[in-house]
């Protein structure tokens, strides 16, 4: 929140990077950034403002809105016992900068983000699906994905068909 000790340190670290403070109901210091400035901002917050831990990296799909995605980083400073949250708007198909160089623990969260929303992270060395099978075609947490799925049994059926063809090649048509 503007005017607090946290915000002064964050503002100091983010000097030269365009950012805007948000007022959220939970009272956590939150700011909005442009995608272009995100990588610099994350590095500055770690190195200059002392946020040595990334609590989570996630995304929100606000479908009718353009751009549709909102990438959320929440950072935590152990030394100051303070948190800050970063919101970045992102269109479908745009790549986000990976923060795994700064916080290796964010790798799983970025993988989950890719799995669920289809947001690709530039600089992530092992960006593959975390929860869904690797052959899965959709990104389930997108708002335009039906919650009952699109052919949810497809992968099982394919596996079953292949297996039966191996058992009884003459029966497989």
């Amino acid at each position: 929140m503007p005017g607090t000790i946290t915000s002064e340190r964050v503002d100091g670290a983010l000097a030269g990077i365009e950012h805007r403070w948000l007022v959220h109901r939970d009272g956590l210091p939150a700011l909005e950034l442009d995608l272009a400035g995100l990588a610099h901002a994350l590095r500055a917050l770690k190195e200059r403002a002392g946020f040595e831990s990334a609590t989570f990296v996630t995304a929100v799909d606000r479908l009718p809105r353009v751009p549709r995605f909102e990438l959320v980083h929440q950072l935590f400073s152990l030394a100051h016992n303070e948190r800050v949250r970063l919101h970045t708007r992102l269109a479908d198909g745009e790549n986000a900068p990976s923060c795994t160089q700064l916080w290796p623990g964010a790798a799983y969260m970025e993988r989950e983000c890719y799995d669920m929303f289809g947001i690709r992270f530039e600089g992530h060395v092992g960006l593959k699906r975390l929860l869904m099978p690797e052959e899965f075609e959709h990104h389930p947490l997108r708002k335009d994905f039906p919650h009952q799925g699109i052919e949810p049994d497809r992968l099982y059926r394919e596996w079953d068909k292949k297996r039966r063809a191996e058992w009884h090649p003459e029966a497989a048509r």
Binding site: H138, P140, H147, Q148, G149, P152
Partner: peptide, 10 residues
């Protein structure tokens, strides 16, 4: 499937 009326659950 119970309460999991979901793409992930049989």
């Amino acid at each position: 499937g119970g309460m999991y009326d979901s793409y992930a659950v049989v």
